[in-house]
């Protein structure tokens, strides 16, 4: 069984993921050899509008999977459902073999699936370091009775701080550790949010538009960080409009339109798919793909999540 093999080796190398996914047929809802996330019949309706209607979706363990689609396709709603920030009308899904459908968001996060937000949610009036420390799991000092007895948690706090500083150095935020997170630039906030997500020791990282509002100078560094996540054995699912980025780093692309999954496959084949070009580009059909990606990114940043 591939699942067993992945569990033994711990971290399947990128080439392994690419090879395995290369053998998977390009059909919507296709099963993957070693899926970490398996969702079936996920349905969410807002009044008369069907926001999400996903028949079947599997995400390969250790892969970087992109979720793309035009505005209003239901990508963020699907994210919210999977991470417990919204309740589905119907639907079942398992993560790492465990059913997490309808589980409250904090328990989803504790089970190893951590998310970031389209509009970055840094905790402005906490320092960058406090943002990081907060995210560490299993903190004794977070119990109210232990909080008043510092000797119970001081040692753990030191370990948490070391880990936080290590990650901050990795994300080039170490000099900002004592600054309020609210004083960071948009790109630095994206970096902090990603670093903070890593503090939770996640198995799978869900990034909602990691590139939105990031200046081009930081883009390469963010891309490298996302690749690093895969190298260290994590699974990444991300929503993105920037086609260059999707082509650049994803192993697999899932395309949504009007709440449904209309296509799946490796980036090159998906982007050549006529259905995808029709659904995704719509009215902007005649313009070059990359320039369009930029304008879509900006337009979408103005539409907040439902």
């Amino acid at each position: 069984m591939p699942a067993d093999r992945a569990a033994e080796t711990g971290r399947p190398p990128a080439s392994y993921v690419t090879r395995v996914l290369g053998e998977v047929p390009c059909q919507p809802g296709v099963p993957k050899p070693d899926a970490i996330l398996i969702a079936t019949d996920v349905h969410r309706q807002f009044g008369g509008l069907t926001a999400v209607d996903v028949a079947h979706l599997e995400v390969q363990r250790g892969s970087i999977t992109a979720l793309i689609g035009p505005n209003g396709a239901g990508k963020t709603t699907l994210f919210n459902l999977l991470t417990g920030f919204d309740r589905p009308d119907t639907g079942q899904w398992t993560f790492n073999g465990e059913s997490i459908a309808r589980m409250p968001a904090h328990r989803v996060a504790r089970s190893g699936m951590v998310r970031t937000f389209q509009l970055t949610k840094v905790l402005s009036r906490l320092t960058v370091l406090e943002n990081m420390r907060l995210a560490a799991p299993h903190q004794i000092g977070e119990e109210v009775y232990a909080a008043v007895l510092p000797f119970l948690w001081r040692r753990q706090e030191r370990i948490v701080t070391d880990k936080a500083m290590r990650l901050l150095r990795q994300f080039n935020l170490a000099e900002k550790a004592q600054d309020f997170a609210g004083s960071l630039s948009g790109g630095q906030r994206k970096l902090l949010e990603m670093a903070r997500a890593l503090m939770t020791d996640p198995v799978m990282v869900m990034l909602d538009e990691p590139m939105a509002g990031v200046n081009p100078a930081l883009t390469q560094s963010l891309l490298a960080h996302i690749r690093d996540l895969r190298e260290s054995g994590m699974t990444v699912l991300f929503v993105e409009h920037d086609m260059d980025m999707v082509r650049d780093i994803s192993d697999w692309v899932v395309v949504m339109a009007q709440g449904q999954i209309i296509a799946e496959g490796p980036p090159a084949s998906v982007m050549a798919d006529a259905r995808v070009i029709d659904a995704y580009l719509g009215a902007h059909h005649d313009r070059p793909l990359t320039a369009d990606g930029q304008s879509l990114t900006r337009a979408d940043a103005e539409v907040s999540s439902p």
Binding site: A109, L134, P137, G141, W153
Partner: peptide
């Protein structure tokens, strides 16, 4: 304490606190 830190994070953005477990 870390408990107080969680309170402050809820004041700043409770969805962020939730997303961190």
């Amino acid at each position: 304490s870390p408990w107080g830190r969680v309170l402050k994070s809820i004041r700043e953005d409770e969805d962020a606190a939730r997303s961190l477990g």
